[in-house]
Amino acid sequence: MINIKLTVNGEVFEDTVTERMLLVDYLRDQLTLTGTHVGCTYEGVCGACTVHLDGEAVKSCLLLAAQADGHEITTVEGLANGGPLSALQQSFSDEHGLQCGFCTPGILMNMSEFLTLNPDPTDDEIRHGLIGNLCRCTGYVQIVKAVRNAARAMRETS
């Protein structure tokens, strides 16, 4: 067992975990933050488990919880953190950027970092940014539109 101390959605957690525990399992099972999803059998190809590690989008099924010791994690629960929806979340709601919603947490976490690096993306850039997130329902058209509109809304308010 190993002691870890990390910040998740702004709150500091100190825990004891097994060395082999995956970060995604720590978030879901130990912290009951079940917004982070598991979409593949952890091969690291679906992106549903995407969270921010120190602000960067990463797949939490490809990390040990122990690797996150000392770091800052943000999960989809941290985007609104109990307050109003973020502009990106609101845009997914407005544009029907989801159907079953299983892929949505990972897409929101990936695109929220993407938009900080590229605040005015073309549709091609959005699509290229989405490669690591599989959606079995939507066909991506509304997802791309939601990201594009969120980018505009964020530029207008900044």
Partner: peptide, 9 residues
């Protein structure tokens, strides 16, 4: 390589 998340790590 792969996707943004893979390139971040």
């Amino acid at each position: 390589v792969g996707d943004r998340q893979v390139r971040n790590r």
